[in-house]
Write a protein that binds this DNA or RNA. Sequence first.
DNA 1: CACTTGACCTGTCCGC
DNA 2: TGCGGACAGGTCAAGT
Length: 297
Amino acid sequence: MPELPEVETVRSGLQRLLPGQQIKAVHFDWPKSFPNANADVNAFVISAKVTEVKRRAKVLLIELSTNYSLVVHLKMTGQMVYRGSRERFGAGHPNDSLIGELPDKSTRVTIDFSDGSQLFFNDQRKFGWVRLLPTPEVMNLDFFKKVGPEPLSAEFTWQIMRDRMLRRKGSNIKAVLLDQTVLAGVGNIYADESLWGAKIHPSTLTGSLTDKQFKTLYKELTTVLRLAIEKGGSTDKNYVTAEGKRGSYLSFAKVFRREKLPCPRCDTTIEKLRVAGRGTHVCPFCQKAPGKVAPGA
DNA sequence: CACTTGACCTGTCCGC
DNA sequence: TGCGGACAGGTCAAGT
């Protein structure tokens, strides 16, 4: 799972469920999903209690009472699903859950808690990972040293976004939105959605954007990220919340996965193209390709 | 150096 | 139906 709103939704779910839980056992069978699992798991994970669940960029940080942290990246298809001691299926009715009984064949890591509840790290494509690190060293990971600011933080302004984006003025704006060193947490869904909102074509050279466009893009991006968090993220195939439920943002999406459907703003048929190596959705009328002038721009 | 492309994996969908 | 190929929400390493 993917982007900031999805990871934030999982974080808030785990933060409701995990603090105070004591870890009894950890199981994993695909070593790449837990590359540095070693004797430290026995020393610093078994018997530890979860103190807090945090997020930075698209990464979950499960902090333990031993001053170690389980650091989790869900990449494309990762899930973190909690099951209470009496729930073989999802909380409430089984139909609420996208997934059935756990563990299943995509389960890579299982954490057992003392009260009988369990936390499952599932990952169909095996790109995601869990790592164990001393909490004070987590931010020394190369990824965290390079990652850009949180787009929803109070300090993040449109001018900061513009200045950081202009470090890559020779790239198209879609590639720059996806660049985690420019700003944290944006992926393919919310890049397309915010570019549609700002009426900017994804192939537009970043260096050619005006201040007015940067300002609009900032507003659209932060608005769409907040809305997606409110809706519990976007579920297409794999993503689920900590309770195993779907997120509902995609029913509010304007262009993502809506190729061949009408643009909600002008009724022009939405097209799917390839930009920055990624499937990209645009309204060809609202978002004029570079060289042409967008309406109202 | 700045930027783009392939690789990491499994599963699904689409065309022949 | 079967089978090959393209594609899927992310990030690195290696390439141009």
